[in-house]
């Protein structure tokens, strides 16, 4: 095999691919099972956006915190949350990551530094400022990453947090996941500035825009600003331009999209295809190796669904627990 031209060694390349494949399979399975009526509630899929979460999370450890969004499954998986616990949560089972009390929009695993998916747009930004403040006070070199959609980037909480993080010089990275839409509304209409880099500049921090379907672009840009934040250099904003492969939530007819748009982005902007072709072409990883991962991941997701369906429901008494630490 030829020399590795990538900024990651082969083991890490395979790890990144496995993470992205796991997210994709997890989401596609939910898409199918939701249509069958197996899954209750609102489900927002991250399929198409895997390179963003993965490229960023490769730089983090369990001591680093992330605050996620309503579209949180990908962030969870990339941050190391157990897929069996996630699946069980989405099925409302007692073995779920939040014992069935949170559901898809509130999956959290604090032991992994995953401070929760969030049902309130923009709510993660102030929280991650707090996480970064705690890291700074403790002096443990931890960083905080908050994800925000293009739509939620218009929330006051987000804009106030940009300023606060800059004023307090916090180790925070604000990741704008720009998939072009907030529900059915176009980003181009709803966001008044031309570029998120301008916004970042306005708040006194560096801003970077990358192609969020290119794992390597995300990985490299994130690496630099995360390192900077860790070293006390302060906050930064990273905009990842990307695409969502399914509706805003499951059940969305997506009539706001242009004709042929979905087919086009699936054909040309599939971050998994882009990554696999690059590593195979460079001769660093073989197709067989990737296919072996595909099979392993498919088995894992299948097992997670089987386990979730077989898992016990919460007990009636669970309704009243966990409201306070002590009362």
């Amino acid at each position: 095999m030829s020399q590795n031209p990538f900024p990651l060694d082969k083991a890490d390349l395979l790890k990144a691919y496995r993470t992205m494949r796991t997210i994709r399979d997890f989401e596609e399975r939910l898409h199918v099972d939701f249509a069958k009526g197996d899954i209750p509630g609102f489900v927002h899929l991250y399929a198409g956006e895997e390179a963003c979460a993965t490229g960023i999370m490769m730089h983090l450890n369990d001591n680093d915190r992330i605050a996620s969004t309503h579209r949180g499954h990908g962030h969870c998986i990339a941050k190391g949350v157990d897929v069996h616990a996630m699946m069980a949560e989405i099925y409302g089972r007692s073995t779920g990551a939040c014992r069935g009390k949170g559901g898809s929009m509130h999956i959290a695993d604090l032991s992994k530094g995953m401070m929760g998916a969030n049902g309130i747009l923009g709510a993660g930004a102030p929280l991650i400022c707090g996480a970064a403040l705690a890291a700074k006070v403790r002096g443990d070199r931890g960083v905080g990453i908050t994800f925000v959609g293009d739509g939620a980037s218009n929330q006051g909480t987000f804009l106030e947090s940009l300023n606060l993080a800059a004023v307090w010089n916090l180790p925070v990275v604000f990741v704008v996941e720009n998939n072009g839409y907030a529900e059915s509304t176009a980003m181009e209409w709803a966001v008044s500035c031309d570029s998120y880099v301008d916004r970042a500049t306005g708040f006194g921090m560096p801003g970077v825009t990358v192609d969020g379907t290119d794992f390597f672009a995300v990985y490299e840009a994130a690496g630099e600003i995360i390192r900077r934040a860790r070293d006390g250099g302060g906050p930064a904003l990273l905009e990842c331009n990307m695409v969502r492969f399914y509706g805003h939530f499951e059940g969305d007819a997506q009539t706001y999209r242009a004709k042929g748009e979905l087919e086009a982005i699936r054909a040309s902007r599939d971050c998994l295809t882009i990554l696999s072709e690059r590593v195979i072409e460079a001769g660093v990883v073989s197709r067989d190796e990737l296919q072996a991962i595909d099979r392993e991941v498919a088995d894992r997701i299948e097992d997670a669904v089987r386990a979730a369906k077989a898992a016990p429901l919460p007990e009636a008494s669970d309704l009243l627990t966990d409201v306070y630490v002590a009362y």
């Binding site: 839409y181 529900e183 059915s184 509304t185 181009e188 209409w189 009539t255 706001y256 999209r257």
Partner: peptide
Amino acid sequence: EDIVGGTGAHGEDDAW
């Protein structure tokens, strides 16, 4: 929010 829907997008007007 999205009471009309599709604002600024290239699909159907009144999409939502």
